[in-house]
């Protein structure tokens, strides 16, 4: 969250409409959390084996003990039905091996309304 705070400060300094932008910046703080939650809820973890050096941090940090490292070695997505998609492995991997991919079960954008709102807010910021 430090990031967003920095961004806020930066915007406040550099532009005349500082207060407006500050408010938007504050919104973006929540937006980030929302996108993150959304990614977690609608995605599953996919490895990029070319990046993996089998250090085991992912497996070690999985709260339910899935051997994620093995999935990365074998280039298999973590579609284990027990996966909580909590994102611990993705966040902790020191080499960015793991990422969330949308399951896209319904072949559609699940949160189109949220998305369009988010994008307008963002364009006001940059």
């Amino acid at each position: 969250m430090k990031k967003s705070a920095d961004l806020l400060a930066k915007n406040g300094e550099s532009s005349p409409g500082a207060s407006v932008q500050k408010a938007l910046g504050l919104k973006s703080l929540f937006r980030y959390e929302r996108t993150r939650r959304q990614a977690l809820a609608t995605g599953f973890v996919v490895p990029d084996p070319a990046r993996c050096v089998q250090c085991g941090i992912c497996s070690y940090n999985c709260p339910i003990g899935i051997d994620i490292r093995r999935h990365a070695w074998l280039n298999k997505p973590i579609k284990d039905s027990h996966c909580l998609s909590c994102g611990e492995c993705v966040a902790r991997c020191p080499r960015g091996v793991l990422r969330f991919e949308r399951t896209n079960l319904f072949n559609e954008d699940i949160f189109p309304s949220v998305r369009s709102k988010v994008n307008t807010t963002e364009s006001g910021l940059v």
């Binding site: 969250m1 430090k2 990031k3 980030y32 990614a39 993705v90 991919e101």
Partner: peptide, 8 residues
């Protein structure tokens, strides 16, 4: 869909 985003 990046969850690894808390970099400074």
């Amino acid at each position: 869909l990046a969850a690894q985003t808390d970099f400074d």
